[in-house]
């Protein structure tokens, strides 16, 4: 493991994109996905998150989980900035299909059309999807 760490210190910076396509609470993917994103901050990589399809629901304002007995992890998205994770890309079409706009989201994002998002995905080194 030591030589691997040396390489990392040597400054290998890759473009990581975490692709979120699942709604929160119904399954654990959004929550455990967020845990990976937070850990990735420690590795000083070029990290972004894409929210596509039901993944956009992860960012909906007004989540209140008291009555279902799960932890509301939505405030964590607002904390990402503190981890220097500021590239949050949201798929315009997925918002439109769900009757949502940027104003319905709990954090500042960059809304992208299909062509922009497709180009952004294509230039990544590592894509991890949840």
């Amino acid at each position: 493991m030591t030589d691997e760490m040396d390489m990392e210190e040597g400054g290998v910076i890759k473009k990581f994109m975490f692709v979120n396509r699942k709604a929160p609470y119904g399954t654990i993917y959004a929550l455990e996905g967020l845990e990976v994103v937070l850990i990735s901050a420690a590795f000083e990589q070029d990290v972004s998150m894409a929210f596509i399809d039901d993944g956009v629901y992860e960012l909906a304002k007004g989540q209140d989980t008291k009555a279902i007995g799960q932890k509301n992890f939505s405030p964590t998205y607002r904390a990402l900035e503190g981890y220097d994770i500021e590239k949050l890309y949201v798929d315009q079409k997925s918002l439109d299909e769900r009757g949502l706009t940027e104003a319905d989201l709990l954090v500042d994002v960059q809304v992208m059309d299909s062509a922009e998002l497709a180009a952004m995905m294509a230039e990544q080194d590592v894509l991890i999807s949840f």
Binding site: M7, E8, E35, I39, S40, A42, F43, Q45, V126, I128
Partner: peptide, 12 residues
Amino acid sequence: SGLGQLVEAGIQ
């Protein structure tokens, strides 16, 4: 082991 092992695999 920790989740860092996944990120590290992505890097390596």
